[in-house]
Amino acid sequence: MRTDIVTFWHGPLDALRRLCLRSQVAAGHKVTIYSFDPIAQLPEGVENAEAEPILPHSFAERLRPMTDGVWIDRTMLQFSDFFRMRLMAKQAGLWLDADVLLLRPVEIDPAKPYFAWEQPRQLGNSVLYLPSADPIVTAFEALMAQDELTPDWLSFRHRFTYMLHKLRGTRRISDVRLAIFGPAALTALARRSGELQYALPKKSFYAVHAEPKLFFEPRDFSPLVGDGEIIGFHISPKGRGNQPPVPGSLHAWAAARFGA
């Protein structure tokens, strides 16, 4: 089944993410990006929807205080960890981060989870689908009903770290580790619910994630685009989102294929 693609963004979109969104549309998916404010320069075929009905802006205050309503990058990252789970609960579609470049359509079984290994022992949540009644979704729903947002799936190491932080005055679990609600949480919950069996191989989406030079620098990228098991690339530009494509790079190839 070719499902709708959904994501969340806060602030302006850079050129790299607009390129990735175009690739998702080109793969034949309906793409919706949720935001609190209208997003300018969205690619043709990408819809912009209100984020507030899915998860209120005020939820960010439970993660970390804001100054004059301004979010920092950590706030957006952690907020999006919860936002994607709310979308799963509402059966909105397949979550793709805005920096996932698709080479081909994504086909899912709506009754089964869909994700891939990002590291040898950790799942990625940049590509995620879960049935609405999945144990991972219900675990996040239960977490969000708490005041302190303290997961019951924390590893011993994270519980110990949090205890030390509390002794030093830290009260929010969100301050302990940046990705505490992200891939580490997904991996722990998938293990607890016996769903690791559904994980796709790392190269399905994360072939260039840990090595961005494979995307941004000139090299022979034909083995990547010619590999039928690679569905897309999670790029994670890390400040290079508006960098012009370098001739001979995978970035330049993608810009030529999907439009600069």
Rank of each mutant, 00 (worst) to 15 (best):
Leu189Asp: 10
Ala255Ile: 02
Val106His: 12
Gly226Glu: 00
Tyr198Arg: 03
Asp227Ile: 02
Arg2Glu: 14
Ile235Tyr: 05
Ile72Gln: 13
Ala89Arg: 10
Arg191Ile: 09
His234Ser: 03
Trp117Phe: 08
Glu118Trp: 06
Gly28Val: 02
Gly248Asn: 03
Asp134Phe: 08
Ser174Leu: 11
Gly28Trp: 04
Ser204Gly: 04
Gln119Pro: 08
Pro43Leu: 01
Ala51Lys: 14
Pro212Cys: 09
Val176Met: 15
Pro53Lys: 09
Ala184Met: 10
Leu200Ala: 07
Arg2His: 12
Ala116Pro: 03
Ile136Ser: 06
Asp37His: 10
Thr32Cys: 01
Val100Asp: 10
Gly228Phe: 04
Trp9Pro: 04
Ala185Met: 00
Ala133Gln: 09
Phe205Glu: 07
Phe181Tyr: 15
Gly169Ser: 02
Asn125Gly: 13
Thr75Gln: 12
Phe140Met: 14
Ala142Arg: 15
Leu178Ile: 04
Leu63Trp: 05
Ile33Asp: 10
His165Tyr: 12
Ile235Glu: 09
Leu224Lys: 00
Asp147Thr: 06
Val127Lys: 06
Thr138Ile: 12
Leu19Tyr: 04
Met85Phe: 09
Pro105His: 08
Lys166Tyr: 10
Ala255Pro: 00
Leu42Val: 04
Glu217Tyr: 00
Ala27Lys: 02
Ala49Gln: 07
Arg74Asn: 11
Ile54Pro: 03
Pro38Thr: 00
Met88Asn: 13
Thr161Gly: 10
Val246Thr: 14
Gly11Thr: 06
Val176Gln: 08
Met88Lys: 11
Leu149Lys: 12
Pro135Val: 11
Ile136Arg: 06
Pro120Glu: 13
Phe205Gly: 08
Thr138Gly: 07
Ala40Cys: 03
Ala27His: 02
Arg22Val: 04
Ala133Glu: 14
Pro43Gly: 11
Gly169Leu: 01
Asp73Val: 11
Phe160Glu: 15
Leu16Glu: 08
Arg168Met: 15
Asn242Tyr: 15
Leu42Cys: 14
Ser174Pro: 08
Leu42Gly: 12
Gln243Met: 13
Phe59Lys: 05
Ser193Leu: 06
Lys202Ala: 15
Arg172Phe: 07
Gln146Met: 12
Gly69His: 07
Arg64Gly: 07
Gly239Asp: 00
Gly226His: 00
Leu178Asp: 14
Asp175Pro: 06
His158Leu: 15
Gly259Trp: 14
Phe36Val: 03
Leu189Val: 09
Phe36Asp: 05
His29Gln: 02
Gln78Asp: 07
Pro53Cys: 09
Arg18Ala: 11
Lys238Leu: 05
Arg171Leu: 04
Gln122His: 13
Met66Val: 12
Gly232Thr: 13
Asp68Arg: 14
Arg17Trp: 05
Val137Asp: 01
Asp81Leu: 00
Leu143Ile: 10
Glu141Val: 13
Asp97Lys: 10
Asp152Tyr: 08
Gly11Pro: 02
